[in-house]
Amino acid sequence: MSERIDQRRAGVERAPAWLVVASAVALAAVIGAQIFGFRTSPPDMAMGDLQKIMYVHVPAAWNAFLAFFVVFWASVVYLWRRTERADLLAASAAEVGAVFTGLTLLLGSIWGRPTWGVWWTWDARLTSTAVLFIIFVGYLALRSFTDDPDRRGRWSAAVGIFGALNVPIVYMSVRWWRTLHQVQSTPETLSPAYRAALRLNGLAFLLLLIVFIAWRYRAARIERRAELVAEEAALQGSGLHV
């Protein structure tokens, strides 16, 4: 009972039921889609069972791109309207996008070693993806080092827009330049045996992306409220417990 009162005083509400349910659904979807992929996909003619890494590497990459699209949109809205929620949403999507990009790099590396023969090479696709990752790690560092919320919002919106402009470059890199990474597969180059599993895993990762951003956004709003409480307390020259 007293715990609930303390939570209310700190401005923290319980997580909404829809978010808890959606998180459970997202987790179940990822597990289900993975099981579906493993049970229905025959070994590929060229790379055998290594093809199954596609079901985590590609969904991670697609959804990282989507997350940075959200960053772009929310950053433009913030610069336009100066609404704090847009800034917090951009920051949340940037953090989740960075995690998904890191996953893409890691899983791609694990895929590259047995198929290409190397963990890493400096071709345009891998290099531009690494640049994308570093920009958004820098974005998060910039936010944590800037205390003034207005300045933090403006600077990170600028970096967020600039970083998101990299997404089309990463996507097109395999067509614009010679790379070790192959060009995108299309439904024509992907045997029907693999299409449903890839789409299902893409959707499952999308659910994961949505709930991750929602949780992070909720945490960002709580952090922001705590910041305001601390500010108010400091101005009144008294402790937090008043």
Binding site: S41, P43, G117, V118, L180, Q182, S185, S191
Partner: peptide, 13 residues
């Protein structure tokens, strides 16, 4: 250093 550069085709047997 030898690296394999495979295509974007995935074919079921």
């Amino acid at each position: 250093n030898l690296m394999v550069r495979h295509s974007n085709e995935y074919t079921a047997p």
